[in-house]
Simulated assay, not measured.
Amino acid sequence: MLAGHNPYLVALSLAIAVLGGYTGLGLAGRILGKTDLQRRALLVGAAGFLSTGIWTMHFIGMLAAPLPVDVAYLVLPTIVSFLICALVVGVSIFFVVGSRPGAFGTGLAALLLGVGICSMHYVGIHGLAGPFAIEHDPLKVLLSVVIAIATAYGALRIFLDPQVGLRLAISAVAFGLAVSGMHYTAMWGMTIVPAGGGHDMAAMGASFQMSSQFVSLVVACLCFFVTAGFLLFLLPEQWGSAEPQPALAAADAAAIGVPPAIDPDPTPMPAQRGRIERIPVQSGGATQFVPVGDVRSIRADAHYTWVHDGNRERMCGWSISEAEAQLDPTMFIRVHRSHIVAMPHVTLVRKEGDAAVVELDGPHPHQAPVSRARVAEVKARLGMTRGGA
């Protein structure tokens, strides 16, 4: 079966699986910090793009295969294959994003995702109708299942690890390999024999069927849908809105008579600052506490924040202004409207245009942006300018 595949369609099938994985996983990554309605919409979108990527990859692979010219596709098994896939993949993504599981939980989610991929394939394969029968090599069936689950586990582990650079792109490639690797391994173990069996057209003449030409049209439309979703996902969430201008330095503002800026975040400031010793974070469905001395940076995400302790990020229920108010201002500085960093842990400052980037130490070093208005203060705090601390 593999020898006669169209290489261009094989490449297209892999590309569509990767694009669908990138868009679906990207939408899943935006679920935290959203309202209940937004979370539901993003979960549906993530499951929809992932399952569409799986389904479209499968049928592009079928069109690439050297199937008999008189093959047809039964409508009911074809639709059922997509519904099973969407349901199982949706449950898997909900489990991963909702609880941020450890290795064992990620393994269960990968098992679900792999089962969804395999179910889609084998139900779809047995939706083929024609004067032939289909046989499978049991060992290659088992190998295809192992490939689907193992690579799905890799994709989810990379997706959940905030320390991996370009983790969304890498996890999407791993997802594409899970889908296409499983599919083509299964096709390697599939044999079409002259018929007699239950796939004969005459035996299924009463069933609704689709021709290869019609399936090609559906696949072309879905390829456009997946690609369009991928391109739309690349747009930033605030695309089209005006970017706030950086605040003037205090001395410049006083010189031109501009009143002090008011923080747009209405969160009230406590009277005492720097008294907090631990920060509550969410991990594995429970609340944990990170010592303030271990905190490297805090990143805003809607009304929540992500706390980085040098190893990984975990979600915190505080807003960025509340975090700024709770922390010791002699150690922490808000370097950007959405980032706070611990100055003792800064190991590198790199200029980027009028702004800058700082790197924080730890087992897994990471970076945070510095807005143009904060560059001078950061340099002064680090002793990089005359008169700095």
Rank of each mutant, 00 (worst) to 15 (best):
Gly293His: 09
Thr35Ala: 09
Val179Ser: 02
His336Pro: 02
Ala3Trp: 08
Val75Asn: 02
Ile125Val: 12
Leu222Gln: 06
Pro246Ser: 06
Ala172His: 02
Cys316Phe: 03
Ala247Gln: 14
Gly274Pro: 06
Thr23Asp: 01
Leu234Ile: 07
Ala242Cys: 01
Ala228Leu: 15
His364Arg: 15
Glu322Lys: 15
Gly362Arg: 06
Pro264Leu: 09
Phe225Val: 12
Gly116Met: 04
Ser212Ile: 04
Gly20Asn: 08
His345Met: 13
Phe94Ala: 15
Leu2Gln: 06
Ile54Gln: 07
Thr185Trp: 03
Met315Glu: 03
Ala376Ser: 13
Ser171Ile: 03
Ser119Asp: 10
Pro268Tyr: 00
Gln213Arg: 14
Pro329Asp: 10
Val164Gln: 08
Ala169Pro: 00
Gln272Asn: 08
Arg299Leu: 06
Gly240His: 01
Gly45Met: 05
Leu9Arg: 04
Ala103Leu: 15
Val346Gln: 08
Leu113Met: 15
Gln213Cys: 00
Leu27Thr: 09
Ala3Ile: 08
Pro101Asp: 01
Ile158Tyr: 05
Ala325Val: 05
Ala380Val: 07
Pro7Glu: 09
Ala202Trp: 12
Ile125Asn: 02
Val375Phe: 06
Phe175Lys: 00
Pro280Val: 00
Arg372Cys: 05
Gly130Tyr: 02
Val258Lys: 15
Gly165Ala: 14
Phe49Met: 12
Val292Leu: 11
Gln326Met: 11
Thr56Trp: 05
Gly353Asn: 01
Ala110Gly: 08
His345Arg: 15
Val258Ser: 12
Ile134Trp: 10
Glu322Arg: 15
Arg374Met: 12
Ile60Ala: 06
Ala228Ser: 13
Arg386Ala: 09
Trp55Tyr: 09
Pro246Asn: 00
Thr227Gln: 05
Gln245Lys: 12
Val123Ile: 15
Val335Gly: 09
Leu9Glu: 10
His126Asn: 15
Leu12Asp: 00
Glu237Ser: 04
Gly257Arg: 13
Gly33Met: 04
Ile16Leu: 15
Phe225Pro: 02
His5Glu: 07
Trp306Gln: 08
Leu112His: 12
Phe49Asn: 03
Thr106Gly: 06
His366Gln: 13
Pro246Thr: 10
Val146Glu: 05
Ala220Gly: 10
Tyr73Met: 12
Gln282Tyr: 12
Arg39Val: 02
Gly383Leu: 08
Gly205Ser: 14
Lys34Glu: 11
Leu43Met: 11
Ala129Pro: 07
Asp301Ala: 07
Asp354Ala: 13
